[in-house]
Design a binder for these strands. Structure first.
Length: 649
RNA sequence: GCUCGCAUAGCUCAGGCGGUAGAGCACUUCAUUGGUAAUGAAGAGGUCCCCGGUUCAACUCCGGGUGUGAGCACCA
């Protein structure tokens, strides 16, 4: 008879086989009430699962991550049940768990409206109150298909038919609702306590744009009302940080109909752009990149040669002029090869690292554009390294070192690494791919960090590493990349003279650290909630006079700061000091310098930091030293700058 | 590109059975010269996204377009 080992190591003997729920009951009534599922020898199961042999058993509650997933998955079923109660004609398809909740896709004759969502939510509440038992059952494929056919659930039939293998399938029933599902699920609908439907949108059946569009209802579910509210607050916080909102509020940039997907940068936004670019230029110079600049308009034939036209013709802007077709460059690499091709190159010239802040345009699909994050006009911190096969590994390793340093400068410590391996359709020999993939793997392993291998996702010309960073909201943003390219240099005739005087084709590494400046600045704005660290802040210090008696002094102070290279301005308006402080605090300026009669008399300014901290009075030199130190610290997250965001507003 | 929303003052947003519109902030003027998150008063400000249709009459209803939001698809 079963001897059960609990997670704390304690053991219990039972006389008869019993269910997970019965084990929970034997431990305590409270635990039994909270039990959502169980883990038996590492396997996640329903609370109704019978344990008849010795096993390690854990009771899963809302406190476990797995418990949350069970709740969300069950909540998806709950929603589907509610939808079918309200709309019997709606067909169910799939309903998986997502990072913060779940969704379910439905096929229905008309679109669901926000009002429908409310009604569905209400019915969900009713089903929770009914506390329907959730029961698992097993059906053969034939029976299952017959059942769903009779129910008119065509999509379910398709799903079952596409599941490989011959085994029977598990089903979950709660009242009048039954769904194909691996499980596990909560014991009864009453276990689902906190949920909310968040949105409805279209989604293609099986994720394929050639298929019909279903309707996806998104929802979120949590173990308690409190957790749900915390999550909703997090959403609100993300909304407050939205770079589109802050871009307007802080007067950084705008978009308008005449130039969809292309930013108009305002003076303050452009200062940020310049600061970011200045930094990257300096970093590249210091690391033996040679900056170049190439045309934005290039004859279409080059894009045909490079292979881009055949694949991306629809996504390229083109211009006809003087009976010639030009494309507005969607990327810099073909142009960089043109620069490489000028003059005979020797193996001694390699590795040759070319960099360009080149303006590129891509006709992105209208529905994909999103503020600065996805635009049609952008500039990358783009670079191409021409090297030999033997040099790949060292170049990749150097690049990674640089990338980590740069991310730290911008305040990002957590980097997520992914290696995309050879796709089915590719060029180059397997031998070459083996080498390139190995080189990237070695470089990744050398970091000592975990990385993820993604099969089949590489570019057709070579494998690539993608670097994502986590912002302070925990969101993952893909930014950097390094890609090995065996293909394009040869296609565009790049060659170098090897040691044995033979002509060889160089390998090209495409690489970017930030990705596009537009997108990266969008990420920065959201990461810092608009309160950029001093080295990036468009306005570093604002001088505020108390009365107009101090105007001369303020003007001199401002001029001196500007002469030192700081970005300073003054607000001499006839307003009360409290008003000015409020206004410039809302503009998230790092330092406010208050000047009254006292300061004029002593030759100082009263320094107030963005978060409200009073640094007392300082002389011009003292303040310059302070600000210089702050600027020199960049956005390194060990500084106090991060905490100050939360206290503003 | 697809599905469903949305588009009103510089900004954030109200509004109306179809009879050409309103608030707060910002802006301008006047008064006020003040010490760390909103001084008071007055004034000005609108092609209600664009093009058609219905109607005596359209910002409102209908159709189309553009932009935009959420999601899907795409992302060299």
């Amino acid at each position: 008879m079963p001897n059960i080992t609990l997670p704390d190591g304690s053991k219990r003997d039972y006389d008869n086989p019993l269910t997970v729920m019965e084990i929970a009951e034997s431990i305590g009534a409270g635990l039994a009430k909270a039990a959502l599922a169980g883990r038996v020898d590492g396997l996640l199961v329903d609370t109704s699962c019978l344990v008849s042999v010795d096993a390690e058993v854990a009771i899963i509650t809302e406190r476990d991550h797995d418990g949350l997933e069970v709740i969300r998955h069950s909540c998806a079923h709950l929603m589907a049940q509610a939808v079918q109660r309200l709309f019997p004609k709606a067909q169910v398809t799939i309903g998986p768990v997502t990072e913060d909740g779940f969704f379910y896709d439905f096929a229905f004759e008309r679109a669901f409206t926000p009002d429908d969502l409310q009604a569905i939510e209400k019915v969900m509440g009713e089903i929770v109150k009914e506390n329907l038992k959730v029961e698992r059952s097993i059906l053969s494929r034939e029976d299952a298909i017959a059942m769903f056919k009779e129910m008119g659930e065509d999509y379910k039939v398709q799903i079952i038919e596409s599941i490989p293998g011959e085994e029977d399938l598990s089903f979950y029933r709660q009242g009048d609702f039954i769904d194909l599902c691996r499980g596990p699920h909560v014991p009864s609908t009453g276990s689902i306590k906190a949920f909310k439907l968040t949105s409805v949108a279209g989604a293609y059946w099986r994720g394929d744009a050639n298929n019909e569009m279903l309707q996806r209802i998104h929802g979120t579910a949590w173990g308690s009302k409190k957790d749900l509210n915390l999550y909703l607050q997090r959403l609100e916080e993300a909304e407050k940080r939205d770079h589109r909102k802050l871009g307007k509020h802080l007067d950084l940039f705008h978009f308008q109909e005449e130039a969809p997907g292309m930013a108009f940068w305002h003076p303050k936004g452009w200062r940020i752009y310049q600061a970011v670019q200045r930094h990257m230029r300096q970093v590249q110079d210091a690391n033996n990149y040679k900056e170049i600049n190439t045309p934005q308009l290039v004859d279409y034939s080059l894009w045909e040669k490079s292979g881009h036209a055949s694949k991306f013709a629809d996504e390229m802007f083109s211009v006809e002029s003087d009976n010639r077709m030009y494309a507005i460059k969607p990327m810099n690499c073909p142009c960089h090869i043109q620069v490489f091709n000028q003059g005979l190159k020797s193996y001694r010239d390699l590795p040759l690292r070319l960099a360009e802040f080149g303006s590129c345009h891509r006709y992105e699909p209208s529905g994909s554009m999103h503020g600065l994050m996805r635009v049609r006009s952008f500039v990358q911190d783009d670079g191409h390294i021409f090297c030999t096969e033997e040099q790949i590994q060292a170049e990749v390793a150097d690049f990674m070192d640089l990338l980590f340093l740069v991310y730290k400068d911008f305040g990002f410590d957590e980097v997520i690494l992914r290696l995309s391996m050879r796709p089915e359709k590719r060029v180059g020999s397997d031998d070459l791919w083996d080498k390139a993939e190995q080189a990237l793997k070695d470089a990744l392993n050398a970091t000592g960090l975990p990385w993820e291998l993604v099969p089949g996702e590489g570019a057709f010309y070579g494998p690539k590493i993608e670097y994502s960073l986590k912002d302070c909201m925990g969101r993952v943003q893909q930014c950097g990349t390094i890609q090995v390219d065996f293909f394009t240099p040869g296609r565009l005739g790049a060659q170098y003279v090897a040691e044995d005087s033979s002509r060889k084709t160089p390998v090209m590494l495409h690489r970017a650290i930030l990705g596009s400046f537009e997108r990266f600045i969008g990420i920065l704005i959201e990461h810092y909630a608009g309160a950029l660290p001093a080295w990036l802040a468009p306005e570093q210090a604002m001088i505020l006079n108390i009365t107009d008696k101090q105007i001369d002094y303020c003007q001199k102070f401002e001029e001196s700061l500007k002469n030192k290279g700081f970005r300073a301005s003054m607000d001499l308006r006839n307003e009360k000091i409290g008003f000015k402080i409020r206004e410039h605090t809302l503009q998230k300026i790092p330092y406010l310098l208050v000047v009254g009669d006292k300061e004029v008399e002593n030759g100082t300014v009263a320094v107030r930091k963005r978060g409200g901290e009073d640094l007392g009075t300082m002389t011009f030199d003292d303040f310059c030293t302070h600000l210089s130190q702050d600027v020199a610290n960049f956005g390194r997250s060990d500084s106090a700058l991060m905490t100050e965001n939360n206290s503003s507003e």
